[in-house]
Design a protein around this nucleic acid. Structure first.
Lengths: 190, 190
DNA sequence: GCATTTAGTATCGAGTCGATACCAATCGGC
DNA sequence: GCCGATTGGTATCGACTCGATACTAAATGC
C-alpha cells in the first residue's frame, strides 16, 4: 500500500515539475526536454558531454536525442565539437546564449519559492531522494550520473589534488563536482 | 545550491518514473498520461471523476484531456455517464478492463522492487514528499487532491461515521480514503 | 583483414499538448 | 423571469516528442 502512495506522490511531483518546466521554457520556445539537456550539459564533465551520454542520462533513444540536439544547435544554444581522439565522437558545448537561457529558466521561480519553506534546507529530503534514485537506477541497470567526487574510482592524492582511478587522469576541485557518465556509487557501509 | 541539487534529483526521478510508465503502458498501447488518468479515476471520489477534475489533477488543458478520454473510451477502459443534476457534467467510470490494465501495469515492477530496499518502508520519505508537494501546489495555486479524510472539511461524527463539512454529505470509511478535488489540507499546527 | 560494435544521423508515423473556437447548460444579477 | 457571464465539455489544427527502422562512418576484436 505504501508503495502505491509513494508512487502516486512521485508521479504527481514529476508532473508538476514538468508543467513548471514547460512554462519556464515557453518564452524561449523550449520544451522540458530541451531545458533538461542544457542543464545536464552545464553540469557534466568533459567526458560526458556527448550525445551518447546525454541519451543515457535522459533515458531516451539516440535518435530522439539527436533531434533534440539539432534543434538546440539551430537555436544557437550549443555547438558541436569533434573529438580529436575518436572521430566518431562529438562534444556538446553550451554557448553563452545557452548558459543565459538556463540561468534564467531553471529552477523555475515557483519551485524555488516553494522550497524556501522546507525544514532544514531540505538536507534530509535530498538524502532520501538520492537513495531512492540510486535504488531505482540500480534496478533499471542504469548509470547513476553522480558527481565525480562521490564515485568509487575517485582518489584523494593530497590537499586539493585528486585522481580518477578509472582513467588515471588528475582532477581539479571543480572537476570533482561535475557529473560523470562513468560514475559508480560507493557501496553503502554496513 | 541545495535548491539546484534538489531540483535535479526530482527531475531525474520524474524522468525515470515516466520511462518506466511508458514501458509499462506499451503492451496495452497506452502512454504515460493514460495510465495516470486511469489511476486517478480509480482513486478519486464520486464528485471528482469528471473531465474537469482530471484536467486540474493532471495540470493540462481541458482540450488535451478531452482527447485522452476519447482514446480511453475507445479502448473500452472507461465509460461516460451523464450527471443527473447538472446536464453539462459527465462522470468517468472505469470498466473492468480498465481496472485490469491498471492492476497489471502500475506501479511498474521495477519500482516496487527498488522500493523494497528502502529503510523503514519509506514512511519518512512519504511524509517529506507530501510536504514538498503541498508546498509546490500552494505556490502554484493548485488544488491538492488529497484523501478526503485528511481534509479540513472532514468531520468525525462517531465510530465509522463521518461527514463532509462542505457538502454536508455523510461519508463511509471507504469514502474517506478517496481523493477529492475539493480537498484542502489542514493547516500545520504551530 | 573482416565481422562486430559503437557513435551519430535521417526519416517516418503515432501520439501529446496547447491554442483557438465552439456549443450547451447553469448561474447571477436584476 | 431574462440575459450576460461563467462553466463543462468537444472539435480541430499545428508544433513537437518519441520510438522504430535504416543508414553511415569510425573503432575494436579476433
Amino acid at each position: 500500500m505504501a508503495v502505491d502512495r509513494l508512487y502516486a506522490l512521485l508521479e504527481r511531483l514529476g508532473n508538476l515539475l514538468r508543467t513548471e518546466e514547460r512554462a519556464a521554457g515557453l518564452p524561449h520556445g523550449l520544451q522540458p526536454v530541451h531545458l533538461q539537456a542544457l542543464r545536464y550539459l552545464q553540469s557534466c564533465n568533459r567526458y560526458s558531454n556527448t550525445p551518447a551520454a546525454l541519451t543515457e542520462y535522459l533515458g531516451l533513444t539516440k535518435g530522439t536525442v539527436s533531434q533534440t540536439l539539432l534543434l538546440l544547435e539551430e537555436k544557437g544554444l550549443l555547438r558541436k565539437q569533434a573529438d580529436t581522439q575518436d572521430r566518431r565522437v562529438i562534444h556538446l558545448l553550451l554557448t553563452e546564449a545557452g548558459r543565459a537561457v538556463l540561468k534564467e529558466a531553471l529552477p523555475p521561480e515557483l519551485f524555488k519559492r516553494a522550497l524556501t519553506g522546507l525544514p532544514g534546507e531540505g538536507e534530509a529530503l535530498e538524502e532520501a531522494l538520492t537513495g531512492l534514485l540510486r535504488s531505482l537506477q540500480a534496478a533499471n541497470a542504469q548509470r547513476s550520473f553522480g558527481a565525480c567526487g562521490t564515485c568509487k574510482h575517485f582518489k584523494r592524492e593530497g590537499p586539493g589534488r585528486f585522481r580518477c582511478g578509472l582513467t588515471q587522469e588528475p582532477l581539479s576541485r571543480e572537476d570533482s563536482q561535475l557529473l560523470c557518465r562513468e560514475h559508480e556509487a560507493v557501496p553503502p557501509a554496513h
